[in-house]
Amino acid sequence: MIILKNLNKELNGNAVLTDINLKLSKGKVYGLQGKNGSGKTMLMRAVCGLIKPNSGYVEIDGKRLGKESAFPESVGCLIENPAFVPYYSGLKNLQILADIKGRIDRKDICLMMERVGLDPGEKKPFRKYSLGMKQRLGIACAFMEEPDIILLDEPFNALDTEGVEMLKNLLGEAKEKEAAIIVACHDKEELELIADEIFVMENGKIMEQKIRKEGTCYEGIS
């Protein structure tokens, strides 16, 4: 369970998050919808523990971020542009990161790379990847360790039709494995295809909360 309580954050005098109150449970996909600059990415950063709220807190499985733990226990994220070591190949980049926790091995990484449509044997360094390939690598990085929380910021950017289908399948599988997934997307139609609940953000506030009724029909509750 992820709880955001009275979360407020100011950066350089501007309120980027205002009075955010959310309860997110496992096994669901939550969508963050809003214009550019509405605070979607900042909210994700707050859930990740990358920014300290000015007031309020983020609690993950009973532990407050910044107090009982600095970061969530198990999280995978793709926030803004995927960034990796430019002179390493995709596989090498993922291996280096996976070695930190040591939970998965090379075989698992190769499988994940193939799932996202990348060739693990590709020797090309990351800096020579196309935008779509970089995005796929970022997605592989977010999903590879089967985290309990997955945060994806505009994950459909630069993906072709196959890539979009791939991502939807990955989201479905992660949902079945009881991961809490937060996806930020400005494209309403894409979001409505995958999200169980959608939060509409504007100027750092949550203006509306919509729960899926059936298909792509949503019922607003606030």
Binding site: L50, S69, A70, F71, E73, C77, A83, I100, K101
Partner: peptide, 15 residues
């Protein structure tokens, strides 16, 4: 700045 986000969330600790 570049790839530290991925390493720091895996480290799970700023310290």
């Amino acid at each position: 700045e570049k790839y530290g986000i991925q390493t720091i969330i895996r480290a799970k600790s700023r310290a």
